[in-house]
Simulated assay, not measured.
Amino acid sequence: MTYAIKNPHKIVPHLRRLARDTWFRLRTRDHVSYYRAVMRSDTARDPEGAVGSHNHRRWLALGRMQFDYLVEHGLKPECRMLEIGCGNLRAGHLFIGYLHTGNYYGIDISPDILMAAQETVVQHGLRDKLPHLTPVRDLRFEFLPDEHFDVVHAHSVFSHSPLHVIEECFAHVGRILRPGGWFDFTFDRTEGKEHQVLREDFYYRTETLLALAGRYGLTATFMDDWERLPHKQSKIRLTRSVLT
């Protein structure tokens, strides 16, 4: 109530979103189907807005921020990279241009946003770099080979995912990582009670995700320097634990 009083301009948009999302939940069988419907609706209105960018300048800035961070933290042109939730290639267009031909793989649960990703490839003259863009139903990575990727990246994916979806990813991502490879992901961090808003936005405690990663043989590092960048989410890096 206090938030509504301080932000009256947000009440009507919130009610519209609530009505739309309730309708989608009633017509879908699981979270992936539900969120795919959300993305279809958002992409039809504005592909860049669908990935969380309110204008093209912000789309470019957020993509550049992700790209620069990964390059500064180990991404090389020869790396083979998988981007989970690649969207319309906000950062992906930079990764594709930087990596060697054929080394970028992007997956997303939304076929609609992947159509927008194809347009981004064309607009940025990246067809000759042969990016792999694939729609998926889950995060089991069953169609991908063992130890194939040096880098796996997921930006603003787990911020929209219930814990069982994150656990599914943790259970399978180690198989596709090469020895010495790593998986960076962002999440909405809370130091209070974990919660969700409209089944679209999920907030987790850091220790919850660290413990979950450890359950699947992954070593987790909280990336403190990411916190200084102009973004509201936090970042964790996972590597395969070394057996001794």
Rank of each mutant, 00 (worst) to 15 (best):
K129R: 15
W226V: 05
V122H: 07
P47L: 03
F187N: 01
L210W: 07
L144K: 04
V197W: 13
L212N: 03
A37T: 12
G125M: 04
P77W: 12
L60Q: 02
H56T: 08
R237K: 07
N103K: 09
R127E: 14
T43I: 12
Y34A: 03
E207H: 12
D188Q: 11
D201A: 11
Y203K: 02
F95R: 08
H195Y: 14
D184M: 04
P77H: 06
P13V: 09
E48N: 03
D112M: 06
F67V: 08
H164R: 06
R27G: 03
N103C: 12
S41D: 14
R45K: 15
P8C: 07
Q123K: 09
V151L: 15
P77M: 11
H56M: 07
D46T: 10
A116Y: 05
T206L: 15
V157G: 02
E167A: 11
K6N: 06
S156T: 07
I176C: 02
V32E: 05
I5N: 06
A211F: 08
E83P: 00
Q233L: 01
Y98E: 11
I5L: 11
R127L: 12
V136L: 07
R57V: 03
L130I: 03
Y69C: 08
F187K: 00
H132F: 07
L18K: 14
V121T: 12
L212T: 00
S41Q: 10
T190Q: 10
Y98T: 08
T22C: 11
D46M: 04
I84Y: 00
P131R: 09
L209N: 02
Y34P: 01
P13D: 05
T186A: 05
L126H: 05
A116D: 14
C86H: 04
A91M: 06
L89A: 02
D184Q: 05
R64V: 00
L133E: 09
M223L: 11
V242R: 14
R45H: 14
H148L: 03
H231C: 01
R57I: 02
R127Y: 02
V165F: 09
N88W: 04
P145G: 08
F141W: 04
R228E: 10
L163H: 13
Y104L: 10
R127C: 03
E191L: 09
Q196F: 00
R228L: 01
T239S: 13
E191W: 05
Q118G: 07
M115R: 15
I176D: 00
L18P: 01
L133P: 04
T239P: 06
V38A: 05
E191Q: 11
S33A: 14
V122N: 09
N7K: 07
H132S: 08
D21E: 15
H93F: 12
S241D: 13
E142A: 13
Y104V: 06
F141G: 01
D21H: 15
R199L: 14
G49L: 10
R237T: 14
R27E: 07
V51R: 07
R175Q: 11
Y204C: 05
L218T: 14
D112H: 13
R175N: 10
